[in-house]
């Protein structure tokens, strides 16, 4: 094969295939290809290559692909899980309401709204509507705060439940148990259902004022 063609011809071919060859050079390329067999073959082979690659059939993901991905995702936040569970099971939701209304006055405390309450742990301090675990203090046992905030500067050796409130953690503050933050009525219901079986212990109500 005689090597008589300008190198730029192959470059032109690629630019043509990328649809980026200006009209003038395209004409030049076509004229050359008509005369030069080597370039004609080269160009033909390039086009054939593209056609072959493009002819490969599309392959779909295997069945259960999405389930596979979903099962491997890190666990989502509890909150959404509960919301969706109730959305999917409206009948259970209704049953729960009925059960609670019949069984006790748990809901009334929610419906009454703004009542501030917390678990009577001996070494907590209350400022306004904020329950404080002071620095250096250790609360041993669970702590529940309703309609108020919680500031942890010391340590809580137990679970913390916050209903309609904010939690602030100081640098040295720590909670060793689970943390549940509840700010929706139905989550409160859910929580009440669970705890009515568990016997949560007592908590005292305070009427909007400090001790």
């Amino acid at each position: 094969m005689m090597k008589t063609c300008p190198d730029k011809m192959v470059q032109y071919m690629h630019e043509y295939l990328d649809e980026e060859l200006p009209q003038e050079q395209e004409t030049e390329l076509k004229l050359h290809i008509q005369q030069c067999e080597a370039c004609r073959i080269h160009f033909h082979e390039l086009k054939k290559t593209i056609a072959l690659v493009q002819s490969t059939s599309h392959i779909s993901a295997p069945s259960n692909f999405t389930e596979g991905v979903m099962s491997r995702l890190p666990k989502e936040k509890k909150k959404i899980g509960i919301q969706r569970w109730f959305q999917r099971h409206p009948l259970i939701m209704a049953a729960a309401v009925f059960f609670l209304l019949m069984g006790g006055s748990l809901l009334t405390s929610w419906n009454n709204g703004s009542e501030f309450a917390f678990t009577a742990q001996p070494n907590v301090v209350v400022e306004g509507q904020t329950v404080i675990v002071p620095e250096g203090e250790i609360v041993s046992g669970d702590l529940l705060v309703r309609n108020g905030d919680l500031r942890v500067e010391g340590e809580v050796q137990g679970d913390v439940t916050l209903i309609n409130g904010q939690r602030y953690m100081a640098g040295a503050g720590s909670i060793t148990g689970d943390i549940d933050e509840i700010d929706q009525a139905f989550e409160w219901l859910w929580y009440s259902m669970k705890s009515s079986f568990k016997n949560m212990g007592q908590f005292f109500g305070l009427n909007e004022s400090e001790e």
Binding site: T56, H58, S60, A61, P62, T66, M70, L73, E76, I80
Partner: peptide
Amino acid sequence: LKGDQNAFGEIVEIYKDKVFHVCFR
């Protein structure tokens, strides 16, 4: 972003074939 994992399942459904195909090739 709000924490709804199920919404991600729909995203997987939309793109699974394309992503799988690229990886396969």
